[in-house]
Simulated scan of single mutants.
Amino acid sequence: MNDALSVVGQLRDLASEPQNREAIVQDQGCLPGLVLFLDVQDQDVLFAALQTLRYLAELPHNIPTMSNELGMMVSLENLIDREGLSVEVLALTKEVYGILSAPVRRTPERERRKKPQFFINSSNKKAKSVTLHIQGLDSTDQRGLCEEALLKVKGVISFTFQMASKRCTVRIRSDLATESLASAIAETKVLSAKQVVKNEAGDEVLISLNPSPVEVQQNSALPDYLPEEEDSPEKDLGRAVSRPAAKLDGNGSWITSAASFLTKTFYW
């Protein structure tokens, strides 16, 4: 099951990048594979598959295709009724099921332009990416603690992990202080964060982040994904190193590889 966890984890990281979501849903192998992942017993694989579906559903016109995928809704319903699931897996299952089963309301273009922005004011139109080095990020348990801490911070949009280098790339609202992330992570009592920045010579250095004295605003639910307008991280001490976007070539090579793995693993 380690191979399955690796594949679905990388697919989740691809899905975290908005420009990949349509291609993943349109691929003939990925959605059927994710449906099959919903029937496995390994809860790490389940959670990663559900996170992937949650990312994909953030693109509204993906939702009809996803909800109509053979076995998708039935598998989610069965998962909701399954005994022994962790609180996190069950909550995410219900959230994904709610999104896919809700009627899609099409917003007229004129109304969409007039819709109030998620941001506080016009100066906060863009999101930014921050790369953190997480001391103590040694296992999936610590990763889970870090995920829970980041999800509680209001203004966090998405995040991806690079476990081998103990890195976490976090996409946040432009008005959210990086120190707020450090404060949230420090509250785990076992993890601490430094920001990865480049100096003038282009070398990576770690910058200590003092926990914010201001109480961190917490989310009551997962945040909506913000408009993807690229902006360099705003940090007085340097430029944060953001994770290169997961790009697909003309043939969607990584998605094709993932679909091939799913086919070989589950269809025989």
Rank of each mutant, 00 (worst) to 15 (best):
Q10W: 02
R12K: 07
L14Y: 07
A15P: 01
A15S: 05
P18A: 13
Q19L: 12
R21E: 10
E22S: 11
A23H: 04
A23C: 06
I24R: 01
V25N: 00
Q26N: 10
L31W: 00
P32E: 02
P32Q: 08
V35Y: 01
L36P: 07
L36F: 09
F37S: 03
L38Y: 02
D39F: 07
V40E: 15
D44H: 14
V45K: 02
L50D: 01
L50Y: 04
L50E: 01
Q51W: 11
P60M: 05
P60F: 01
N62G: 04
I63H: 06
S67T: 12
L70V: 15
G71R: 05
M73Y: 02
D81C: 10
E83K: 12
S86E: 06
V87G: 04
L90C: 02
L90E: 04
A91F: 03
A91I: 12
T93C: 09
T93H: 03
E95Y: 15
Y97G: 02
L100A: 06
L100E: 00
S101Y: 06
S101E: 15
T107S: 13
E109K: 15
E111F: 00
K115T: 02
P116Y: 04
Q117F: 07
N121L: 09
K125W: 08
K125Q: 15
K126Q: 14
S129D: 15
S129M: 13
V130C: 08
V130K: 05
V130M: 10
Q135R: 12
Q135F: 09
G136H: 05
G136F: 03
L137N: 07
D138E: 14
S139Y: 03
T140H: 14
D141A: 14
G144P: 04
G144I: 04
L150R: 03
L151K: 11
K152W: 04
G155K: 02
F159P: 00
F161K: 09
F161R: 04
M163P: 01
C168S: 03
R171E: 10
I172A: 04
R173F: 11
D175C: 13
D175I: 02
D175G: 00
A177H: 10
T178A: 14
T178F: 09
I185Y: 04
A186S: 09
E187R: 15
T188W: 01
T188L: 06
V190T: 09
V190N: 11
L191Q: 06
V197K: 12
V197D: 01
V197M: 05
E200G: 13
E200H: 14
L206N: 06
I207C: 05
I207S: 03
S208W: 05
S212A: 10
P213G: 08
P213R: 09
S220N: 08
A221L: 12
A221R: 08
Y225N: 12
Y225W: 13
P227I: 11
P227T: 10
E228D: 13
E228M: 12
E230I: 13
E230D: 12
E230T: 09
D231L: 13
S232R: 11
P233L: 15
K235M: 14
D236S: 14
L237A: 15
A245P: 07
A245D: 14
A246C: 10
A246I: 08
K247T: 14
L248V: 05
N251E: 14
N251A: 13
N251C: 14
G252S: 10
S253R: 12
T256P: 01
T256G: 08
T256Y: 05
A259Q: 00
S260F: 13
F261P: 01
F261D: 00
F266Y: 10
W268D: 14
